[in-house]
Amino acid sequence: MLIINLIGLGLIALIVWWFWLYKPQSTQVSDEHNISEITVVIEDGIYQPANISLLENKTLNIKFIRKDESPCAATVLFPDLEISADLPLNKEFSVQLPAMKKGEYAFHCQMKMYNGSVVVK
């Protein structure tokens, strides 16, 4: 029983670390034509990439390609920037973000089941 309990506690520790403590690396956006842009694919319940990093005071063009049929994936919200967009299925849709100050700007679906962030450095 002790081993089972230890396995259980280990699993709990793993959940805490994996979902809350681990800080995933963010994807740096490209900077062509002096406009920062990145493509984010929405498929199978996630944004890919979900974590984007960007330099301060740069506008960002995020090209969303929604391949996920779930109606939840159809809307993306940037609450801190008061920006939202309805994303068409299997089509590219650009969302322009204004130049941002240092900080983390979350984006997610209406239910917060699809989560991502733009980290401005």
């Binding site: 259980g8 959940i15 805490v16 979902f19 809350w20 917060k112 089941m113």
Partner: peptide
């Protein structure tokens, strides 16, 4: 698509909800 303040608590809970349920599930089994 904007949320009134009343929805903020639900948002905070949603962010931790699934891992917490997974933990409760393990605790329950134990």
């Amino acid at each position: 698509n904007s949320k009134p303040p009343i929805g903020r608590l639900a948002d905070i809970i949603s962010a931790y909800f699934v891992p917490v349920v997974m933990i409760i599930s393990i605790v329950s089994a134990l």
